[in-house]
Design a protein around this nucleic acid. Structure first.
Lengths: 151, 151
DNA sequence: TCCAATTTATTTGTATGCTAATGGAAGGGC
DNA sequence: GCCCTTCCATTAGCATACAAATAAATTGGA
């Protein structure tokens, strides 16, 4: 009965319609969902994305305190604690008190690192490649550049 | 003491180094974190991003069953249930059994819609604008286009 | 040296977000 | 008309993620 409501609103010439599917936050959630699926298909040692990030940081940059690892991986202190706990249960990290600072717990990866490091890098490359598959090589570079600009 | 290890690896000419900060999954998490902060600063009615999406879908497309609302907002059945529960507690949605299908619960927004809808659209625009602020207008269009291509 | 501010780790509470399992209801094909 | 499949909603369990509060240890400045 009524005509389309937007034709009655005075701001129509100035504003485009608000379409949820075109909002950055909504799109980020959807792209994240797809990435999480791909990650799960390709991961090793049952690592989740955050666990994977923590392991890569430890292998690439060496052992550190729990809070420092949180900063290296952009995780809250409460979040990194849970991640480290689950890695410890899996036997992938070792915790020991810092002799120089009794507040700190040093997190390290036991055993030889090179094979594990190479494996994680290879898996990470595969996950990134699969996630970026819908884009052309030029688009991939553009997307990563623009995302990095927004952090 | 050892030379840089990458100079010993045979695949160095073919592969670039794996840098966590340049991986799509890691970047998506960081950008999401920033967006979540901005969202929290600007939101109304204490709506979270998913609650906001559900409300916008209901206001833009009308009432529907709980599972249907989940599909409209790309949420799992378990996730949309939690979201609807919290919206119900806030009094923002009403639940009633579907007389034609006893499996279904119809979710609707009580009261007049136009003001609430206009408010949510305005808030959503503000959040999107603030999130995309580091980019030029052309870059914003590009980013949204590439993200949409990846869903 | 001593006190205030900072840092570290932990805990609690809330909110996604997924898988998997369950039970009830509806629908389609025979 | 019956059965098999599908659909709907709920529940339990696991893993992020953040805020806020706490307690212990360290540090820096007066």
């Amino acid at each position: 009965m009524q005509p389309a409501p937007q034709s009655e609103r005075p701001d129509d010439a100035a504003k485009k319609a608000y379409v949820l599917d075109e909002q950055i936050g909504y799109l980020l959630r959807l792209v994240n969902q797809r990435h999480a699926l791909i990650f799960q298909e390709h991961t090793v040692l049952d690592l989740t994305p955050t666990q994977f990030s923590a392991m890569v940081r430890l292998l690439d940059e060496g052992e550190c305190s729990q809070n420092e690892l949180g900063r290296r991986t952009a995780m809250d202190v409460a979040t990194i604690k849970g991640v480290v706990d689950r890695l410890r249960v899996k036997g992938l990290v070792r915790l020991r008190p810092d002799p120089n600072d009794r507040r700190r717990t040093t997190i390290s990866v036991p055993g030889p690192h090179e094979d594990l490091r190479a494996t994680l890098h290879a898996v990470g490359r595969r996950i990134t490649r699969q996630t970026l598959k819908p884009l052309t090589p030029a688009e991939r570079r553009t997307l990563l550049r623009l995302l990095a600009k927004m952090v």
